[in-house]
Amino acid sequence: MTVKVIIFDFDGTIADTHDALVEITNRLAGEFGYKPVGQDELEILKTLSSREIIKRSQIAAIKIPFLLRRVKTELGKKIRDLKPVTGMETALFCLKEQGYQLGIVTSNQKDNVCAFLENNNLESLFDFIYSGASLFGKHKVLEKILRQYNLQPDEVIYVGDETRDINAAKTSRVKAVAVGWGFNSPSILAQHQPDCLIYRPQELVRAIANCQTVDRKAL
């Protein structure tokens, strides 16, 4: 079945928010009772799954929703200064010109996403934005989109930079393209067996084309 819709994660996939998020989470460490991370620890965290990262941080589970809310609010104060991942703009425009519908599913706030897209002249590319997905609830949003737009799983590809993005795609039975330029390292992404793993935005258009013809079972 022909792919019609490409859905993207936002932070780390489209927007280069890595440094801003590290600075914010380190600044909030004392308030929420976890240790700030240095560069060495950060490199270790990149090789862990999303659930392993939370376990390693030893943040009390009851504090996580409040922490995420604060991080999103603080990120909103920086969003106007952030830029897309280098090469991502060209890839997005190319996919749009090829006739794909583009969407965003993110746990970030919609105001943050819209401000970023507007500031970088990307708002015209996206047909929908679903925000506020819980940390491990993106599959529910993907399934909602399938129902709302009367789409079959084979008609959708989800593009993300974390292991939880791959898992959400698999749970929703849509193809997963993992990008190696975001938070999680390519090694841990590969362990979670996405349909495709790419390392540069310049590879995205070809990866989408390959997903049109290669069945998941053949990979």
Rank of each mutant, 00 (worst) to 15 (best):
H139V: 06
V156A: 08
K140I: 11
V156M: 11
H139M: 10
Q148L: 13
L135N: 07
G160F: 01
Q148N: 15
Q152C: 12
G137S: 00
L142N: 02
K140L: 14
R147Y: 13
D154G: 14
K138P: 00
I129N: 04
Y158P: 03
F128P: 07
I157R: 01
E143S: 09
Q152W: 12
N150R: 15
E143A: 03
S131E: 09
K140Q: 12
Y130V: 13
G132P: 05
Y130G: 11
H139R: 03
F136Y: 09
G137P: 01
E162A: 10
S131Q: 06
P153Q: 00
F136Q: 04
S134K: 14
Y158Q: 07
D154W: 11
L135Q: 08
R147E: 14
F128W: 10
P153R: 02
I157S: 05
K144G: 08
Y149S: 08
Y149E: 12
A133M: 06
Q148P: 07
Y149M: 14
Y130S: 14
V156L: 11
L142P: 10
E155H: 11
F128G: 02
Y130W: 14
E143T: 08
F128K: 06
S134L: 14
Y158E: 04
K138S: 04
E155I: 04
H139Q: 11
S131H: 01
Y149V: 03
Q152I: 13
F128N: 10
R147Q: 15
V156G: 01
K144F: 12
F136S: 01
G160W: 00
K144D: 11
D161W: 08
P153G: 07
E143Y: 00
S134Q: 13
L135W: 09
Y130R: 15
Q152P: 04
Y149Q: 13
P153K: 01
Q152A: 13
I145Y: 03
I157E: 03
Q148H: 14
I157D: 09
I145N: 05
F128L: 13
E143K: 11
G132V: 08
N150Y: 13
I129W: 09
F136W: 03
N150Q: 15
F136N: 06
G160I: 05
G132Y: 06
V141L: 08
V156C: 05
R147W: 12
K138I: 05
L146P: 05
H139P: 06
Y130N: 13
F128M: 11
